[in-house]
Every structure is written in C-alpha cells, then in structure tokens.
Amino acid sequence: MDLSTFNRKIIPIRIRLLKRAGQLLGNDSDAEDIVQETMLKLWDIRDQLDSHPNVEALAMTILRNKANDLWRQRQRFAGMPQETGTESYTTEARSDMELIGLIVEHLPPLQQAVFKMKEIDGYEAEEIISIIGCSPEALRQNLSRARRKIKEEFVRLSNSRTI
C-alpha cells in the first residue's frame, strides 16, 4: 500500500479511533497518543492491509491492545510507593532503580526487549512469543539470561558502591 492509498483508506478511520480511545482512556492527551501509536503500527504493516478483510476492525483491535498496554503499565507503577513528605521511597531505592535501568539498557537487544515486555510492560509469554516470533523455549532462555545478567551486574555494581 502506497502513501496515497494509505491516506485515502486509513486516515478517515482516525476520527473513529480517537472517539473510541477517548471512551477507553477518558483522557484526551492519552487518547491522542494511543491513536498516534495505532496509526504508526498500521503504517508499519501497510503491505498487509490490502489483503486484510476489515482494516477498521484491525485498527480498533490494535487501539484496544495499546490501551491495555498503557493500563498495565499504569497498574505496575501504581503499586510503587510514591514520594511523599515522609520520603517513604528513599533516595537509595531510587538510585537502585536507576542502576537496574542502566543495566537493562546494556543488555543484548533481544534480551532487553524480552525483559522489558515481560517485567516492565506486563505482557504475557504468549503475547511476547507472537510479537517477537520466537519459540517458548527461546523466550524462557532469553528471559532467564537477562534476569541473571541484571542480578550479577547489580550485585557487582552495588558492592563496588559500598566499598
């Protein structure tokens, strides 16, 4: 699908997507972001859209999945202690989280992607397998390697910080 066909077939769906995103999220800025991500995903798979029987239904499914991802991410962060006047979330805990984030950024790309999808974004194993296109065994191995590397590096760097 070329740009002009994409603009003619897909861009008119945007208004309905925005309305649905507003219903799902209730926040206009979040709704706009999710619609934009949906449009980017549709652009990425534009070569497959010509043969798809119902592009609008596909777009709505992608939108719903993006909204679910955002909800999952918010649920994960909602469980974390927030900064208050009593400082329940200490500076040390924040620096540990930053250190883990740096370690994750230095993992090999596949391990990094698998770890982020599973532990940060909250995807289920089946979802990750379908996105990445790997076997369940490969997913398990990459996740295990990523966790082990993060643990080893965290312990090593934490020990060197306290000396």
Results as ranks from 00 to 15, higher is better:
M117G: 08
K118G: 02
P109S: 10
L102W: 04
K116Q: 13
A125R: 05
I120G: 03
I120K: 00
K116F: 14
E119K: 01
C134M: 14
S135A: 13
Q111P: 00
I103H: 09
Q112F: 02
I131Q: 08
F115D: 02
S135P: 00
V104L: 13
L102A: 12
L99I: 03
H106I: 12
G122T: 08
D96S: 09
P109D: 10
E124D: 06
S135R: 13
G101A: 01
E119N: 13
G122P: 11
E119P: 01
L107W: 05
I103L: 14
C134V: 14
G122S: 03
I100A: 02
K118A: 11
E124A: 14
E98N: 10
L102T: 11
I100D: 08
L102F: 06
E137I: 05
S130Q: 04
I132G: 00
P136W: 02
E127A: 15
I132A: 05
E98H: 01
I131A: 12
G101Y: 02
S135D: 01
V104Q: 10
H106E: 03
A113F: 11
A113W: 11
E98C: 06
S135G: 05
K118T: 00
Q112P: 08
G101N: 01
E137F: 06
V114P: 01
Q111E: 15
I131L: 07
V104P: 12
F115V: 03
S130G: 02
I129C: 06
I100C: 03
I132R: 06
H106D: 01
L102K: 04
D96E: 14
S130L: 00
I120M: 04
G122F: 14
E126S: 10
K118L: 10
F115M: 09
S130P: 01
S135T: 14
G101V: 03
I132M: 14
P136I: 09
F115E: 05
G133F: 14
E137K: 11
E105S: 07
A125G: 07
A113Y: 05
Q112T: 08
C134D: 02
L110W: 06
S130T: 07
E127S: 15
F115W: 07
A125V: 03
K118W: 12
